[in-house]
Computed example of a mutant assay.
Amino acid sequence: MGFESMADMEKAAAAGKIPLWKAVMEEDMKERSVSMKETMDKMRERYQAMKQADTDYEENLKSFSGLSGGDGANMQRLVREGEAVSGGFMGMVVTRALKMGESNACMKRIVAAPTAGACGVVPAVFLTYEQFYGIPERTMTEGLFMAAGTGQVIARRASISGAQGGCQAEVGTASAMCAAALTSIRGGSNEQILSAGAFAMKSLLGLVCDPLGGLVEIPCIRRNVTGAVSAVACSDMAMAGILTRVPFDEVIDAMGEIGEMMPGGLKETSQAGLAVTETGKRVALDLAKRNQTPQC
């Protein structure tokens, strides 16, 4: 059944004198009645799928709507030319977040982390961190347990659905998962890990879900970039000893409450926000015309 709260996860880790990620792994072993090897292999399989999705990105592929495609390659060229002010590491985080979001829009295979709409955050940071710092794949896989456990608690206490809680529930959750997991991989204390997750979620509280034409493309893909970049910054703050004043569980509960208060038009219905700008209306009209045209 997983953990009811991050505090429960922390208690389980303390009782077993094990890291938070391992408490999540052991809970999975218990819940699914599998061995440590089986649960590690399953998580490694997910990480390999993230890597494959990154490798399989196609620069010239466009989504059916024509709204997405090629931007990941454009960003990568800027980084390779040394023109990215954000630098090599962060430039590649941005690049990979764009690539993953575009691949999702183009119906290619991705890993929902925790959802397809937020699929770019965790792999963008994880793959880039492994690449730049030479981290063993097993360590990165262990970090995914921390990410998964964090996402499970958020899903239980609040929501990971844009239709229920807005984009704060999707990209906000992904960013919190990523920040906590990255801090775990970096050897942060439990307090630092939970602070990083809390920082990331606090940074995106209230983020609405208002996609143009009802598609998970604009502004969703760029929001994955925001979530990924924020996760790195939040991990750095926590590793610097900056700690959250509001416990992570309370931040999660606040997110859930905000989602309930959010108008329905801002929860994936495309009835408000960017979706009803003049450009948004044109996109919706164009898509409607396309859908009425017989496809060969």
Rank of each mutant, 00 (worst) to 15 (best):
A73D: 12
V85G: 04
K108V: 01
N74S: 13
V111Q: 01
G88M: 10
A105W: 02
E130Q: 14
G134M: 08
L98Q: 05
M43D: 03
A112H: 11
E130K: 05
A73V: 01
S68H: 09
A112M: 09
K62S: 03
K99C: 00
R77C: 09
M107Q: 14
G87S: 10
E130V: 15
M107L: 09
E102G: 07
Y129I: 03
L78Y: 02
A112Q: 11
Q48T: 10
G72R: 04
R80L: 11
M107T: 12
A97V: 06
M107I: 10
G82A: 06
M43K: 04
F126E: 01
L98A: 03
G82P: 04
N104E: 13
N104A: 13
R96L: 01
L127S: 06
V125I: 12
K62C: 01
R77K: 15
V121P: 01
T55D: 15
G120A: 01
G70A: 03
K108A: 02
C106D: 05
R44H: 15
M100V: 12
R109N: 13
P123L: 08
Y57G: 02
E45L: 12
R109W: 12
M92F: 15
A105D: 00
G82R: 04
Q131T: 10
A113F: 13
E130G: 04
G134F: 10
G117P: 05
D54T: 02
V79Y: 11
A53H: 00
G69K: 15
R77N: 11
L78V: 15
M50H: 03
A105R: 00
Q131S: 15
A113L: 12
G117Q: 02
R77A: 10
A53M: 03
A112I: 07
A124P: 04
G101D: 12
V111Y: 05
G87D: 05
Y57M: 06
V122S: 11
D71V: 03
M107A: 06
A49Y: 12
E59W: 12
P114L: 09
A124D: 07
A105M: 02
E137P: 06
F89H: 01
K51R: 15
P136M: 06
N74C: 08
A124H: 10
N104M: 10
A53Q: 07
G120R: 08
G66H: 07
F126N: 00
A97R: 07
Q48F: 14
V85K: 14
R109C: 08
M90S: 06
M40T: 09
T95I: 06
A118N: 08
M90Y: 13
S103A: 11
D71P: 02
A118E: 07
C119R: 01
D54P: 01
S63V: 00
Y57D: 07
M50V: 00
G101C: 02
G72F: 00
K62Q: 13
P123M: 05
D71N: 14
D41V: 13
R44Q: 15
S103H: 07
S86Q: 11
A84P: 13
M90W: 09
L78Q: 13
Q48C: 09
